[in-house]
């Protein structure tokens, strides 16, 4: 696997439109460095669209996306976890073996690697179970393990703890903290301000498709600059 970095990734005047309606943008953003950036904002603000743009899943209507290399090379260095975990219709182990085999790893090596990854997220006893039989938290852990098994430089997570209970959320957060320690850059969306306070090094605050605030989590939560951010943190409903 190439060790050359694919960061920074830069969005300049990036806009995504659907049926003539601006979903997000124009925004300028540079993803680099280390740590966890929380993308927060009300529903429909465009948080998911930003993650999808950075992963090349949504094409830009305007503006530009600067990757350090082609889309395929960059995606190899990225992991993406969807809000609703997409699992292959296979057993738990095969869900992890598949992406490794896509990269040309031999089955025996891929299986061993996958078993190690399952042990890391506490799913090794479910290896031969059908993925569909997992609980919501276990599914999300499996999706996270699949993203992490590729040793991504940048991990994009779309509300990975949505609709999970406290214990499942805690388990997911522990995995994310462990990934941060190994140097994985993480961008994740969340509606859970408690989680944002626990995990965030930086915050991107999005309203109506635009970045309203970007800075350290400490500053954002202690002294938000914009009235929208203050209102959001107070639990007010933004228009």
């Amino acid at each position: 696997m190439s060790t050359a970095t694919t960061l920074p990734i830069q969005l300049k005047g990036a806009t995504v439109q659907r049926k003539g309606k601006v979903i997000v943008g124009p925004i300028d953003l540079s993803v680099e460095g280390r740590g966890i950036t929380m993308v927060i904002g009300p529903n429909g603000a465009g948080k998911t669209s930003i993650l999808r743009m950075l992963h090349g899943l949504d094409a830009l209507s305007e503006g530009s996306l600067h990757w350090q290399g082609g889309a395929k090379r960059v995606r190899k260095k990225q992991g993406y976890v969807f809000q609703t975990p997409v699992l292959l219709r296979r057993n738990v182990l095969e869900n992890l073996v598949y992406p490794l085999k896509l990269r040309g790893m031999a089955r025996v090596k891929a299986t061993k690697h996958a078993m190690d990854a399952l042990a890391h997220v506490g799913l090794n006893t479910f290896a031969q179970h059908a993925a569909r039989t997992l609980s919501g938290g276990e599914r999300q852990k499996l999706a996270l393990a699949r993203a992490l098994i590729m040793e991504p430089e940048l991990l994009l997570l779309d509300e990975p703890c949505a609709s999970l209970d406290g214990n499942a959320t805690k388990a997911i957060e522990a995995i994310l903290i462990s990934a941060r320690k190994t140097g994985t850059r993480i961008l994740m969306t969340t509606h859970d301000m408690g989680q944002a306070r626990r995990l965030a090094d930086d915050v991107l605050f999005i309203v109506k498709g635009k970045i309203h605030e970007a800075g350290t989590a400490e500053t954002f939560f202690a002294a938000p600059e914009t009235p929208e951010a203050r209102a959001f943190l107070n639990g007010d409903i933004l228009p």
């Binding site: 995606r75 993406y80 292959l88």
Partner: peptide, 18 residues
């Protein structure tokens, strides 16, 4: 099935044949 897998397989860099 493709409706479920679309984003995932693109995200995993699967070629068209894969």
């Amino acid at each position: 099935l493709w409706a479920d897998y679309h984003d995932l397989l693109i995200s995993l860099n699967a070629s068209r044949w894969q």
